[in-house]
């Protein structure tokens, strides 16, 4: 695993230090470390990271709060599925960034349109993937619950939901990546701070070293989140692993 990160780093180090390579276009690792130090001293890294994290957390939390109950009930009840599936399948093909102008008109320029963008960009995928996971609950497990005196609501709550928790965690792990895409897009369009905003500013001043620094931050955050979700899955669903 280490090699797959270290080797590109070495390649970058070598190429960016070759004579004739313009550091404005390809900053060297040293330049980027300096950019980190410079921005860190100004305090903008923490400020931007926190701003973006809050947007992602708010948008994705709303998305999850809608997707889990909706996905589970759509998976369990054909009538609810018939009601929501066609419209959701249509909506999810509309690229979320295309909604930004509308959200700005409706919600202004503050946090609301950014949160709305993340919500709209992830809620449909979250819902459909959770709905699909309900299909894999073994029929026998549901029937045995009925023979033990369970009713439909209890089957939903005590059998279907616990059974798909590993799938839900995995779904969130995959889809939170989308919310990081969207927060950067939103910040590129209109924002006071945030990782995307800082990248836009850096572009105006041709600070490619700062752009690189922020790209690395985005990569590290994404990687850390992925690891965190995997960790939560392993710890909380020991039963699902051999």
């Amino acid at each position: 695993m280490a090699a797959s990160i270290v080797l590109p780093l070495i390649a970058w180090l070598i190429i960016s230090n070759l004579p004739g390579v313009n550091s404005t276009f390809l900053p060297s690792p040293q330049n980027v470390i300096e950019a980190f130090q410079r921005l860190g001293a100004k305090g903008v890294i923490t400020q931007d990271t926190i701003a973006s994290c809050i947007r992602v957390s708010a948008g994705f939390a709303l998305s999850v709060a809608i997707a889990i109950p909706l996905g589970i009930t759509m998976g369990a009840f054909t009538s609810i599925r018939a009601l929501f599936e066609p419209i959701i399948s249509l909506l999810r093909y509309m690229p979320a960034p295309a909604f930004i102008p509308l959200f700005i008109i409706y919600l202004g320029l503050n946090e609301e349109p950014k949160i709305a963008l993340i919500l709209v960009g992830t809620v449909f995928f979250n819902t459909l993937m959770i709905m699909d996971s309900v299909k894999f609950v073994p029929k026998d497990l549901i029937e045995v619950t009925y023979t033990l005196g369970g009713n439909r609501l209890q089957v939903l709550k005590s059998v279907i939901t616990p059974y798909i928790i590993p799938s839900i965690i995995d779904t969130l792990r995959v889809n939170i990546a989308t919310s990081w895409n969207l927060v950067v897009v939103a910040e590129l369009v209109a924002a006071e701070d945030g990782l995307g905003k800082r990248i836009l500013l850096a572009q105006r001043f041709l600070r490619t070293d700062e752009i690189f620094a922020y790209l690395i931050i985005l990569g590290v955050i994404g990687f850390a989140l992925d690891l965190a979700f995997r960790g939560v899955l392993k710890l909380s669903c020991r039963w699902a692993f051999d």
Partner: peptide, 11 residues
Amino acid sequence: MVFQKYTLYPW
């Protein structure tokens, strides 16, 4: 009821 398939709740 006891089924042929294993129907214990795995969690």
